[in-house]
Write a protein that binds this DNA or RNA. Structure first.
Lengths: 241, 241
DNA sequence: TATCAGTACTTGTGATCACAATACCGTCCC
DNA sequence: GGGACGGTATTGTGATCACAAGTACTGATA
């Protein structure tokens, strides 16, 4: 605290725990679909792969389980959830309520800098090459949405939304792979454009509507996807019957 | 599974882990305000009081921290949060959005049995003796609200609401103690009655309005309470400055 | 008397061990 | 050939230990 402003040579160094790094690494792997829906994750295997003891891993897995990103099996092992059509729809219901509200607030409150950030994220999404890996599209899409939600200045609600995205992550990416990235991207572009226009024009109702439409489209795509691959999911659904 | 329906002699026995029991015990203690806002909880002390090793306790505390029921200090100890007026208001914002929506759904969907459960919970709240411990009023109030939300049939959203209540718990009970139970109860009764009437008459908008009004009243009471005790909270707020 | 160094103690993190429950797999018998 | 049985490996839970970082108390000194 005695340091003068210009002496930025000694800033506090990172002091994150091993557990935290393990947590973030697994979380990212889930978002990037490095684990398949239904896959069981064991503590010792992950610990070996990550080069740590089992302690940080078991705490990281518990953290992800509390956030409902991972699912607790009756054996107390954890696995990547295979969301049923109903579960996915329910999460989307919650997302529509929360994210629609956040979009509304963003349209009311966004200042110039925040608007610029949103537009930048939108450009990044649009400029993604069409034959991109699904995780890239997913990432850009995520950044666009959260640029909006951060402009709502409601950190508590933002923290509620985050885990919902991670929970949808593995199944959404699986969906992307199956349907093809270009179709997904084309669908989202319209809603993104509408949302951006609404926020720019400070029209809260229109912004909420656009975001809700975007989420609803995802939800309906997943319903269709599940119906068409019912037999595949039937096997992954109950590995313990 | 081969057992006949009438042989209820051998049902599956409880197989919860020690960690789970510890978690529930601490959680209940928080709801019942056995810990004060700002109090630091240490692993070893709790372990000794509960008669276990430190392992179950440290996992239970982490669980509560992930749920934001407890707060992580820079030293990585945890403490019962002292919610600032702004933080409390933000949680209430989220609660109004989510719980208002659930009340709306309940008014649309509640069947006779669910309506009966709500009315029962309402009676229990009203019949609570006025000089009751604050935790009893809090408990009855909670049961009334959740009887409504369960009738909405949205388990995912219900899981989002639950931690918000636990987070408010310690500060709300402190508020009850300070303001007096009868004043709180009198204020809530009106809103409860309005909510119940609206659900019974299947009027979603009115139900949402009543629940939002109830939460807003709590929020405003806390604002007032904080302003009047600013000097007390100033000390508890930054125990590490 | 106020300040600072030094020490003992507290606390969370991470590793390792012990154990019970479960899952897996080969074998044997019908 | 197929299903039941039994042994082995795997897995999560809980306890204990080792350690580094931080805190508080103590005593000496200016």
């Amino acid at each position: 605290m005695e340091l003068k402003p210009h002496t930025h040579s000694l800033q506090p160094i990172a002091r994150d725990t091993l557990q935290e790094r393990v947590y973030l690494r697994i979380r990212q792997a889930l978002i990037h679909s490095e684990f398949k829906p239904g896959q069981v994750l064991t503590i010792r295997e992950l610990a070996q792969k990550l080069g740590t003891s089992i302690m940080p891993v078991r705490e990281a897995l518990q953290k992800l389980t509390v956030e409902r990103v991972l699912e607790l099996l009756p054996t107390r092992s954890v696995r990547v959830p295979v969301l049923s059509a109903e579960e996915f729809a329910e999460i989307c219901e919650a997302r529509m309520l929360l994210e629609g509200h956040m979009a509304r607030l963003a349209a009311e409150r966004a200042d110039a800098a925040e608007l610029e950030r949103i537009e930048e994220a939108s450009r990044a999404f649009l400029s993604a090459k069409v034959p991109s890996p699904p995780t890239v599209i997913q990432q850009r899409n995520r950044e666009f949405h959260f640029a909006i939600y951060e402009a709502a200045h409601q950190p508590t609600m933002l923290e509620l939304i985050e885990p919902l995205w991670v929970r949808c992550g593995p199944c959404t990416v699986a969906l992307f792979v199956d349907l093809g990235v270009e179709k997904i991207k084309r669908g989202a572009t319209t809603h993104h454009q509408q949302a951006l226009d609404a926020i720019r024009a400070h029209r809260p109702a229109a912004a909420e509507e656009a975001i809700i439409a975007d989420i609803r489209a995802t939800s309906e795509r997943y319903q269709k996807y599940r119906r068409e691959h019912a037999e595949f999911f039937a096997s992954a659904r109950h590995p313990l019957a």
